[in-house]
Computed example of a mutant assay.
Amino acid sequence: MDMFAFMGPYGPLILLIFVASMLIQGYLSSTYRKWGNIRNPRNLTGAEVARMMLDENGLHNVPVEMVPGQLSDHYDPRQKVVRLSESTYGVPSIGAIAVAAHEVGHAVQDKVRMPALVLRGQMAVPLSLGMNLAPLLLMVGVVIKMSGLIWLGAVLFGAALLFHLVTLPVEFDASRRALQYLKERGISGGGEAQAGAQKVLTAAALTYVAGFAMALAQFLNVLGIARSSDD
Rank of each mutant, 00 (worst) to 15 (best):
Y181I: 02
K183M: 08
V209L: 14
T202R: 15
A204G: 13
Q180Y: 08
A204C: 14
A203K: 11
M214G: 06
A197E: 11
V200K: 08
S188M: 01
L182N: 05
L206P: 06
A215E: 10
G191Q: 06
A203Y: 15
V209M: 09
G211W: 02
V200W: 12
A205Y: 06
A195M: 10
V209T: 06
A193F: 11
K183P: 00
R176N: 09
Y208K: 01
A205D: 13
M214L: 10
A205C: 07
K183H: 09
V200E: 13
A193K: 06
L206Q: 08
L201F: 15
G191W: 06
G186S: 04
A195K: 14
F212W: 10
A195T: 10
A210Y: 12
F212P: 02
A204R: 10
A205I: 09
Q198A: 13
L179G: 03
Y181Q: 01
R185F: 08
A195H: 04
T202V: 15
T202K: 15
A195S: 12
V209I: 13
T202H: 15
L182D: 08
T202E: 15
G190A: 06
Q180C: 02
Y208V: 02
G191K: 03
K199Q: 15
S188Q: 00
A210L: 08
G196D: 10
K199F: 07
A193E: 14
A178N: 02
